[in-house]
Design a protein around this nucleic acid. Structure first.
Lengths: 337, 337
DNA sequence: CTACATTATGACACCGGTGTCAGGGTTGAA
DNA sequence: TTCAACCCTGACACCGGTGTCATAATGTAG
């Protein structure tokens, strides 16, 4: 396939490079006749502009980076799906970059990424969405960024989230309405802002319904399945055993379910279990997990769309949205006996 | 941050652009003194070459594309992990591109991707690895590609796989050794080459051990959890009920487990269940699934490494490797009663 | 009909690198 | 000593677009 460049189009159409460029970019000040002539040549020659040359001239790469450090594969996949959808709408591409949260290495890692890829913008996913050091760094370097599922909304950034606190409140309330009073809670990873939000929702539901908070019912997890196993062990060993467990995500909830089943406990007859996120595993196991569904794809797609808009026009307003999370009840929770 | 370009480095070091470029690319014919001088300036000025400019000059993007259409999220994540590892070693970036297998749209979709991104190469993951139309298209366009987990090895391409047929043989044999004779089988998606391979391994194990193949024990699935539910229903309704089920992947196996549990069957006491892939779910459920572990990350990493090598030097030999798959026994399979 | 604003177009430099080639300096063999 | 071969280096064009500015063509007000 011989290369079709802007030069061939220009000479073929009998106009200058610059005019072709104007048509490409929908610039004003091109006569309708000329525009149509050029557009026709585009088709005839099957011309596609070279994004690299374009990037060089405009100092843009048309690539968005997505950074993550998340134990939940399904979460990442959903984030990617949403980001990809937005990228495709805007003729951007998505570059994925897993990286470790810990330590100073992060900033230099990101710095290297930015220098070596010249990304136009960055999507921050949990736990990076609320990582102040990183956000400040990006701000100082004037790198456009968007935050997905951050706990805090700030005035001057793009941020799309869902209401974790409210979701946790609702699912806890659901358990309370089923008659549960001793509801154990497994926390998430301390670096994720969702961890605190979900914990807050749990506590608010308890206090709203006049149930005293009991610290012994709270276990520290980190969102991983493995941590869920450890927490589950402690919880199931308690006497009296709680009648329900609310884990901060579905993987940990699945771990509780596995351990409970291993110990011959019937779920939900002997113990109710609830999770969070509506990960695939929540419906792949028996009994299916009652959980909170967040519109992760939608959140990410909106965030990336706004990010790209912002890149095109840095005057663009900040964008802060909170989407609804909703309760999904399955078989893992039932009326207390 | 003011921009550090090759020009600033050159004038600062008192040499020409071209000499700086030579140092950058480790070209010969640069005196040691000059080379060191330039390298020192790199550090002092904290210079990073602009990949976009480089790409324009060399007509390369330093980006590898990875295309997929796979219902298994965990498989995709593993592929990405391996591909990213290889990319990072070689200062490449990874661009992910989900797309539909079906129809003519695929080729034009890929064509558009190539034109708009100028990818240096493509990684084909199942089911694309064995999709002849696509492979032929890439060959005709002279786009470098590598195939992951393809069934067939061809002479002139890069292809890294594991032995699905052998894996299926071993897990079936494992069931036979436990005394099972009526072993149901759930096939995968017909477009995936692994589907046929795994079926072959199953049949070979049966015939090796003198067990007659029974077509009624075979169900058509498509690797999705949902299809597993349907197949499980048919299998569990059989009389006499098979004593074991071998599903072509873990999601479908998990579906069998869920349905069996719903029907009050004890696994593995009443029925043994085996999967394939060693997906996370295999160890997240109870009982854990006996399955076959394939080194997906390793496969992809090798494939991408070779692909990048090939891009740098198109004379590079073809590369064809088959890695070992290994049996992992968990609680879902046991001696027949 | 002139004076001036506005629109349409192209020439040319530029983005930040790499490829080609020519020229000066060394080295080694004749 | 001479000449070819080789090593090192830089000038310059080029990759394929975009930005700036000058200029020609057209429109509009006085």
């Amino acid at each position: 396939m011989k290369k079709v460049t802007i030069n061939s189009v220009a000479s073929y159409a009998g106009v200058s490079k610059k005019t072709v460029s104007r048509v490409l970019n929908n610039e004003p000040n091109v006569s309708d006749a000329t525009r149509e002539k050029v557009l026709k040549v585009f088709k005839e020659l099957d011309y596609t502009p070279n994004p690299i040359a374009r990037g060089l001239a405009q100092n843009r790469s048309f690539i968005i980076g997505c950074i993550y450090d998340n134990p939940s594969k399904s979460y990442i996949t959903r984030v990617q799906t949403g980001a990809l959808a937005a990228c495709q709408e805007n003729n951007y591409n998505l570059l994925i970059h897993p990286c470790d949260l810990r330590g100073d290495a992060l900033i230099s890692n990101i710095e290297h990424l930015l220098q070596s890829s010249r990304l136009d913008g960055l999507v921050l996913t949990p736990p990076f969405s609320d990582f102040k050091v990183l956000v400040d760094f990006l701000k100082s370097k004037k790198i456009p960024y968007a935050r997905v599922a951050s706990a805090v909304l700030e005035d001057d950034s793009i941020s799309v989230r869902s209401n974790d606190e409210q979701g946790a409140f609702e699912i806890t309330e659901h358990l309370i309405n089923l008659g549960h009073k001793a509801i154990a809670f497994i926390k998430g990873h301390p670096d994720h802002s969702a961890t605190e939000q979900r914990f807050k929702g749990y506590r608010r539901a308890l206090s709203t319904h006049g149930i005293e908070f009991n610290e012994r019912l709270v276990e520290e997890g980190n969102f991983s399945y493995h941590s869920g196993v450890d927490s589950a062990r402690s919880i199931l060993d308690l006497t009296p055993r709680p009648t329900a467990v609310f884990a901060s995500n579905d993987y940990m909830a699945a771990a509780v379910l596995k351990l409970a089943t291993q110990r011959q406990l019937k779920v939900p007859d002997d113990i109710s279990i609830a999770g969070f996120d509506n990960a695939p595993i929540a419906r792949h196991i028996w009994p299916g997990l009652t959980t909170i569904a967040q519109p992760v794809e939608e959140m990410t797609q909106q965030a990336v769309n706004k990010l790209i808009e912002h890149i095109g026009d840095p005057q663009e307003q900040p964008y802060q949205v909170t989407l609804e999370a909703r309760l999904i009840t399955r078989e893992s929770t039932a009326q207390v006996k």
